[in-house]
Amino acid sequence: MIHLVPNLLAVLQSSSEQTPEGSLFFPPKASNFAAEADWLYNFIFWVSVVAFALVIAATVYLVVRYRKSVAPEPQPSPHHSTKLEVIWSVIPSIFLVVMFWKGFELFVDYRKVPAGAYQIQVEGVKWNWTFRYPTGAESNELHVPMGEPVELLISSKDVLHSVFIPAFRVKQDAVPGRYTRLWFEATMPGEFPFYCTEYCGTSHSGMITKAKVYETRAEFDEWLKSALNPYEGKSPAEAGALVWERKGCKTCHTNDGSNLVGPSFKGIWGATREFEDGSTGTVDENYILESIQMPAAKIVKGYQNVMVANGGQELSDEERDFLVAYITSLAN
């Protein structure tokens, strides 16, 4: 734990410069909103620091100055001063109006989606994100080109979720039963964390993905093309690994033997499983198929019945076959 101290110092050192790791208070500035949002944050910060320092300095000074150790007698002193009270009501109010106004202006920018923005549909489901692009391509990580306005049209299949990309300083709840939207223009190539930040149950903190920004439109287009047919040229097990990653299986089922919300896929092929109702069974193709389509039919002892059919995803027959092949390949 000692290593955390130098860690902290390193963060302090880098506070002034803009690095891929971010500054003292912020992640990197990777979108058009970041500079202005951080400026406003810093403005409020310094106004608050000055106000707070004045209050605390006055408190400490007055306590030290007027402290009586024994049997304090009341001293004559002012109880009221209209002039003073007006001053300390009006001056903060001026700052408050400025804060509101700056926040309002920035908010208008946040909400005014430029015409012709590249629209990507985002769907949240417990506990995975799906992104759909105008070409019909689909992914579980957000891919965007740099320097182009991108609009996310957000929805949810089950409960409230929330799209949050700290490096872009954007956030919007995903609400079942209605669309919400946000927009941004990425200004820095790279990969940035993408979180769910509205509590959504067991694996809320596992509902994390990435926003990948391509420096040029050509690179982005190339990715788009490969995303259209992701399984092409792959063996069934390799394709299954992709399904596992893309369709959110990995949020609850690892491929390395560690157990999360659901049992790991590693080494279960051919194993005998004990179920909650006391019965047992062997893991074969039909067991896996049943567990994907009707997860509640057999619950492995020690686990809860939280999975929905197909993990809430629209899996094709082909994708189920790939998954079976993948789990087979993870046999010991």
Partner: peptide
């Protein structure tokens, strides 16, 4: 409480300001 409410109250300003709350909400 003067110290603690000072910080608690002032940090509310970032959350009442629309432009900064978007980033800070639910964090």
């Amino acid at each position: 409480v003067i110290w603690l409410f000072g910080i608690g109250g002032l940090t509310g300003l970032w959350l009442g300001t629309l432009g900064t709350d978007i980033h800070l909400h639910d964090t």
